[in-house]
Design a protein around this nucleic acid. Structure first.
Lengths: 203, 203
DNA sequence: CGTTGAAACGGACCCAGGGTCCGTATTCTA
DNA sequence: TAGAATACGGACCCTGGGTCCGTTTCAACG
């Protein structure tokens, strides 16, 4: 996967250097906003031209970093074992997927933040979002009695948005496990299906 | 409410002019990003200096517009009749609140979008968000058997985020009533309380 | 009214940061 | 090792938010 079929080796080397430097900068600096492209170039020991040729624009760089980090999870989801893999029952897989996403964002706060605010064009156009949404939607549809899978998928994903996670972890100081538990709880409730609603269950 | 105790009348007049021009521009133009401060100033027939003196910065202008639009809803929530007002039972009020928020964002798509992406510092620091969150959290706490009110409030509010609403309305072309119904459905499910979970209700 | 100080005006100006350009250096191929 | 192809890099451009300050307008007072 590292090669990226492209003859000249200096190009590949520089690409790696940029990736590494960017990753370091984004995790080190407080806010993604104060990592400029010039910073990245300098940290990688490379000119701005090189950087932009390799990644197109800022969003491209972010995307490259993000996808790289996401790869393992993607694998686990597509071909891995339960509870993430495709063999899992829908009702168990949905919470597992959202938990994985949450953990990912907790582990890559700055990066996810940088990518999601991005600026121009909403996060909903990013293809990695579309992938998650499509998958989640598909799994939700397999749960009998559940309707509005499309919207529900969006709404559940919204609960793991990078800036919310950042806020909960950073400002409200909610610990990792606490957040996971609360998300799991929330997801479970959202998955209640069937005609009954508004019920106040017996204590 | 228009006066804004400030002796000189040209100041007030200009303030109004800017507000009006900005409102027009934001609703007219496709994306909030291509409404520049210079545009607003020009459209209002005013110098940039005036604009910045009156509102501090871009975020200030957005906030002013937003708050003005939000005022009626705020009234309805604080002192109005059911289902938004404080006399409503929690279980009915929560969906009503979220529905109101959704409608507001549908009616002010561009503006809400502009304010929420904003750029620097997450939407979660905005005091209007804090107000909604605090209210919702408080109401949720009054529902017996419900825990994690804080997180739940965040998660429910996340389902009405401006860019999501924009995406659903703009890309997926979901009609207003459809979206309201789906949100209502989602909220209802999230409010299910009590020990039972994972149930597949009888058809 | 006319004066006068305070407050507001407005547009030239500054600056950061994303993105481009092109002359130069490097790499690959034969 | 010559030549073409490709990559390099930093000077440069441009947009857009925000500031500065000389000029104008307001309103309070005589």
């Amino acid at each position: 996967m590292p090669a990226r079929q492209s003859s000249r080796k200096d190009a590949i080397r520089n690409r790696e250097a940029v990736l590494a430097a960017a990753e370091a900068l984004f995790t080190r600096r407080e806010s993604p906003e104060d990592v400029t492209m010039a910073d990245v170039a300098a940290a990688a020991g490379v000119g701005k031209g090189t950087l932009f040729r390799a990644f197109g624009d800022r969003a491209g760089l972010l995307r490259a970093l993000y996808e790289a980090r996401l790869e393992p999870i993607r694998q686990a989801v597509e071909t891995g074992p339960a509870p993430l893999g495709p063999a899992t029952s829908p009702r168990d897989r949905v919470p597992a997927l959202l938990d994985a996403i949450l953990c990912f964002k907790l582990d890559n706060r700055r990066l996810a933040l940088a990518l999601e605010e991005g600026g121009s064009s909403s996060p909903y156009r990013a293809e990695h979002y579309e992938r998650w949404h499509h998958l989640l939607r598909t799994v939700l549809e397999q749960i009998p009695g559940l309707t509005n899978s499309d919207f529900t998928a969006h709404a559940l994903l919204a609960a793991t948005r990078a800036d919310l996670v950042e806020h909960l972890a950073g400002e409200e100081r909610i610990p990792r496990e606490g957040m996971r538990a609360q998300l799991a709880n929330f997801v479970t409730r959202a998955l209640v299906s069937g005609p009954l609603q508004g019920l106040t269950a017996e204590e």
